[in-house]
Design a protein around this nucleic acid. Structure first.
Lengths: 219, 219
DNA sequence: AAATGTTATTTGCAAAATACAAATAAATAG
DNA sequence: CTATTTATTTGTATTTTGCAAATAACATTT
């Protein structure tokens, strides 16, 4: 069955968050082809209907091509569309965002990673996509285990505290944070494992659930 | 410039919420054409690249065609995609949800409105879209002024209390609710206006902001 | 006109959550 | 053995929330 409607272009774009030097960063890609050849932009590409099961599958393919592995956390962000957002024609871009622990990145990847506070003007409507992604990240950081996916699988409560502060962009009381997190039951101590140093050893923790867990909340 | 990639079909689907007899309902449409001709489904249609500025514009067009007016609240929900979700081929559906005060509906529209608890099996992946829409509505009901858009422009605090309970699906303490809402500053009393009856008159209120307002919250 | 029924709104207090400040713990480095 | 450093706990003030009851203001009935 055929439709009589001319169809728009379909693509995906990805916003890849990581934390470097205590700062929230994005992993960008230098565009190999026109338009905007040579410019830094969000990693993305066309949907391949022969190859991709759905757009999330396309996003995974793009991320694998960029990083060489799958992101520990991937979620659909928003869909951007319109006649003018891409010079090639009326287009739909399904945007995804992913959280990548910095420990998984190699040198060349770090070289294309920039703090979100310090990004160049990006091509297409990528600035808008980035703004939306940061907004979503900050928002979910206030009521879910999301920021934990920026850490390696094993971390201390202080690591977690720091990453929540960096993603939320605010200071959080240590004692209250510990209390809140522990009662939410999203992490568990790894028995007998500590990070040592010239100070009291810090208990190591891991996520209790592989997936994102929202906090309970009342109105 | 042309791309070498075969493009998927692009469409929009809309989930239209309203409250009827104190119950959360959806306004459905009977499909006029194949596939699934004659079945109740979410109102939707193809993106018209000649006509629509973007997919939100397409959703507005679909809603206007269905209801005859613009929805007071419209937001992008999620994008559904894949080879098999529509028999016509690999497709992308950008789903939107809207909140419609029941007072705006006419008889024929009410006739195609069903409680969410009592929906028939819907065609395509529309059950999945509905599930996601309800989840989003319930979620935003806990931290924003969203449910207020299901009410007419003027309402009492008890109306608001009821609509929050219906969208959240939980009981909320009246005194706490009033306190919380008033301190969030999302509604304002209309001076001198009351709804009367065989009881103490109820102060009438309106939203202070035309747009959705999230509540302040700490972790 | 007074009593009654009904919903609206406020009040008061107990319980729970959060903020803030400080004390204590446990390691390493010198 | 002491100083230093970060981790973790404790204690208390403050703010939010939950719950129950009291009070308010009208229409309707007696």
């Amino acid at each position: 069955m055929e439709t009589t409607f001319p169809q728009p272009l379909a693509m995906v774009d990805t916003t890849l968050f990581t934390i470097l030097h205590e700062r929230l960063c994005l992993i960008l890609a230098r565009r190999k082809e026109p338009p905007e050849q040579g410019e830094l932009a969000l990693p993305g590409g066309f949907v391949h209907v022969q190859e991709d099961v759905d757009t999330e599958d396309a996003a995974r393919r793009v991320i694998r091509a960029k990083l060489g592995f799958d992101a520990p956390y991937l979620e659909q962000l928003y869909t951007f569309s319109g006649k003018d957002r891409d010079t090639r024609g009326w287009s739909i871009s399904v945007a995804y965002y992913a959280l990548i622990p910095a420990s998984l990145l190699d040198h060349s990847q770090v070289a294309e990673t920039l703090p979100v506070e310090d990004l160049p003007k990006l091509p297409f409507d990528h600035d808008q996509i980035v703004a939306k992604a940061i907004e979503r990240l900050r928002s979910k950081a206030t009521y879910s285990s999301l920021p934990a996916f920026l850490l390696p699988e094993i971390f201390t409560l202080n690591d977690l505290h720091g990453i929540y502060q960096q993603t939320q962009g605010t200071r959080l009381d240590k004692a209250s944070f510990r209390h809140k997190i522990m009662e939410q039951d999203i992490i568990e101590p790894i028995p007998g494992q500590f990070r040592t140093g010239a100070h009291r050893p810090a208990q190591l923790y891991r996520l209790t659930h592989r997936a994102l867990t929202p906090f309970e909340r009342k109105i």
